[in-house]
Nucleic acid binder design. Sequence first.
DNA 1: CCTACCGATCGGTAGG
DNA 2: CCTACCGATCGGTAGG
Lengths: 197, 197
Amino acid sequence: MAKIKSSENSTKKETILEEAARLFYKKGFNAASMRDLAERLGVEAASLYNHIHSKAQILKDICMKVAEEFIANIEQVEAAEQPAIQKVEELLRFHIRKMIYKYEDVYVSDREWKHLAEPFLSEYRELRRNYRKRFAALIEQGVERQEINSINASTAVLIILHAVSGIESWHRSTQKITADLLEENMVTILVEGLRKN
Amino acid sequence: MAKIKSSENSTKKETILEEAARLFYKKGFNAASMRDLAERLGVEAASLYNHIHSKAQILKDICMKVAEEFIANIEQVEAAEQPAIQKVEELLRFHIRKMIYKYEDVYVSDREWKHLAEPFLSEYRELRRNYRKRFAALIEQGVERQEINSINASTAVLIILHAVSGIESWHRSTQKITADLLEENMVTILVEGLRKN
DNA sequence: CCTACCGATCGGTAGG
DNA sequence: CCTACCGATCGGTAGG
């Protein structure tokens, strides 16, 4: 009669989602089994279904949660009064920090969303596309105002977003530089690559 | 009595590997089944085993082939007589072109290598680590010679390698800029981010 | 290259 | 939350 131990501030479902993110991060969605997950939580697989509906729903919940956070952030950044290049830098820093401190969730939503079931697959794809468009629009604004080098905005977005996902390697590396130094290095390389001299 | 159609220049095994790369790229290694693969090749699943030993071996062959290509290239670049920053640019361009023209193989080896079985998992991890070290060494050389901005070399490598994998999005995008323009844009952003003013 | 088939594992349910 | 279990699918083999 083992029980899922959840801390005071989170429900059992949240505890399951958290452990699932770690597991999906490590093994990938398809290779991770519900029996795997149950074992990590100290219960039998069948017991999980008292708290969640399906494996597919777990993935959906993780992906949508992450998507909402990024959308909320870009809305705030867009509304602020500041140069476009600074907006881009803020977006970049948000991505970096999420990848440093919440990397399992972000990584899973980034790499495993293809395994979402419809209609969430289409929905997620659309959220993603929309986010990237808005990100690119900020870069284009920077190009127009001559704050940013004349480059293809979509390419820049693609580089930035994928570069950030490289933080996954940093997590697994044995000789880590500090999180702050990592952030500054990334900002230096990526923002300087954009900035107009 | 369907037969695997292989072109003049390739064996049936090579044809299987090629189709497998496309399939693993699309679905991921675990979600792709041997029955999937067989169907795409127009034969029954059991027939594949006359040409390959196992699903695991297919992944291993793809990953090792890609690894060898990159290692052969870095050896050539290291041996050339030119400024470090130009060596870095050459490595970058090689990665970009591979991702443009052979993206299924590269993408699979990059994203699915975790599913390799031992001893290949350890071997591949080591090849990867070694390659990154050599890449980082070239960047460090550039920093010492003051051709490159003073940044953490490992971080730079991590950014560059992951940024390049973003070309996958470019493949799937509906409004593609040309391959040449993509390459120049990536080089601009990434190399300018490194170059010392 | 195919038919026929195996043992293992999967996500999930019934019922308590 | 557990025991017991199901149907589906998987990688792979035997034998021709």
